[in-house]
């Protein structure tokens, strides 16, 4: 039987140039965020079921520290966004995290150096994901998922950390039957409070 923490490692490569975070990309992102309020109940049961399964799989990859496999769920033009303020424009405001694909790779490679004191020895991660709602766009090319997560992180001899986040995903169709995350926005309910260095939310 496998241990609690599986491993998956990322090939160490020179980073690719990051050319997609244009002004238009930011504008699109903010428009997408603000559209959330316009969504009614999710009625496509098959979409909800598929997305629930997707989120559970993503949660398992994070909880077992298979970060390289987790990164495979993302498109190459992705953003992992943890806002500090609920309605801020990340062009003008600092966030907790606003990572492009390259910075996500940096994070994972830092963990894998073995000298990330904050991650050693092995933080244990678990999260409960619930309240899943999901919608597929009419053109069938994108999906939106909203959900809640309660994330626990445990370290030896340290207090356990807990984070409560509202999750919002923009999935892009990858092929006939699979999807990738273009945007993951994890909004902490206490994003303005002092945070105990979350691993990934």
């Amino acid at each position: 039987m496998s241990s609690l923490n599986e491993t998956s490692s990322l090939e160490i490569t020179r980073p690719r140039p990051s050319t997609y975070l244009t002004d238009a990309y930011y504008s699109e992102l903010i428009a997408w965020r603000d559209e959330a309020a316009t969504y009614g109940p999710a009625t496509q049961a098959d979409v909800v079921a598929e997305c629930t399964s997707f989120l559970n799989y993503e949660a398992r990859l994070l909880d077992t520290r298979r970060f390289a496999d987790w990164l495979d769920l993302f498109t190459l033009d992705c953003v992992y966004w943890v806002p500090a303020a609920p309605d801020g424009d990340p062009r003008r405001e600092v966030t907790v995290s606003f990572d492009d694909h390259r910075r996500l790779e940096d994070r994972i490679i830092r963990f894998e150096t073995g000298f990330a004191h904050n991650q050693e020895p092995g933080r244990r991660l678990r999260r409960i994901v619930s309240n899943v709602e999901a919608w597929e766009a009419d053109d069938g090319l994108s999906r939106r998922i909203m959900a809640n997560a309660h994330v626990f992180e445990a370290r030896n001899a340290k207090p356990r950390s807990e984070f409560v986040v509202g999750l919002d995903y923009w999935l892009a169709r990858s092929d006939e039957s699979s999807w990738k995350i273009r945007v993951k926005r994890s909004h902490l309910i206490n994003s303005q409070d002092g945070l105990e260095a979350p691993t990934f939310l």
């Binding site: 500090a84 303005q192 002092g194 945070l195």
Partner: peptide
Amino acid sequence: QSGAYRGVYH
């Protein structure tokens, strides 16, 4: 005027 990131340690 650009917000803040807050960390906390024990």
